[in-house]
Design a protein around this nucleic acid. Structure first.
Lengths: 129, 129
DNA sequence: ATTGACCTTCCACCAAGGGGGAAGGTCAAG
DNA sequence: CTTGACCTTCCCCCTTGGTGGAAGGTCAAT
């Protein structure tokens, strides 16, 4: 199948598919006699795996790591578990950071609600932040 | 004061200060006879305001908006409250998104822990994602 | 007079994940 | 035989918040 069909099959753009090939997430495509990329059906599975992984918030680099393991003939289960574990820790860290930031901003907001606008000192631009 | 002194006073790089000027967060600097930027003391306050605002997670565009209001001679209190309110909503949205993503990833992770590695189907690369 | 520490401008680069569009080749249908 | 829909490679563009370096000017101290 040609790149446009593969793209339509998984709901990606042809640009994205070429980009993934360029980044090493897809092996260099087979070519038809006219030079067009010619994909086997398993490429669709691979693209769908990339999509599922992205939905799990994995970066292309992480996805590439998993695919490389699979391409070496090893079942990537252990590696995937590692990556998912790291991803969980990373998400927890991000959520904690955002939650802390939210508390700070909420505090500023409460100050701004309670304060007297006339007390604004031009020197420090704004005392609520 | 010269740019290096201003930078040292607030713990920024000279690069960052020129960048802020370029982005319109600072007015075009006064120049000494030799062409060097020559800052008045209130620039330091302005830079500190920028820093405080960044610590509250505001983007340079948002900070610029606040400074523009202040530069128009208006006390930016109301505008700042608006921006902080938007920031709170934005943070809540981001936290909700990350929390939902975390739940998804945790589910994948639990599946991976419970599943039999031998059931791995090469066709779909990895059934845990 | 020359070194060193400043300063100036401008241009390039980084993360991530692609999108836009040019210039050109290929192929089937009307 | 020409039109339209594909495909190819190529390079530039976007976001945000800067950083790095080159090429050159300025100034105080040695």
């Amino acid at each position: 199948m040609r790149i446009g069909e593969a793209a339509a099959a998984v709901g990606m753009t042809t640009k994205a598919i070429r980009f993934y090939e360029d980044r090493g997430l897809l092996p260099p495509a087979e070519r038809s006699a006219n030079g067009y990329r010619d994909y086997a059906h398993d490429t669709v599975s691979r693209l769908e795996f990339i999509r599922r992984s992205q939905l799990a918030g994995l970066s292309l680099a992480q996805i590439q790591g998993i695919l490389r393991v699979r391409d070496n003939g090893i079942t990537p289960c252990t590696h995937v578990q590692d990556v998912l574990g790291k991803q969980l820790m990373d998400l927890d860290r991000q959520i904690a950071e955002l939650t802390a930031l939210r508390a700070t901003v909420a505090e500023h907001y409460a100050t701004a609600e309670a304060a007297d606008p006339e007390c604004c000192d031009a020197e420090q631009i704004c005392s609520y932040v």
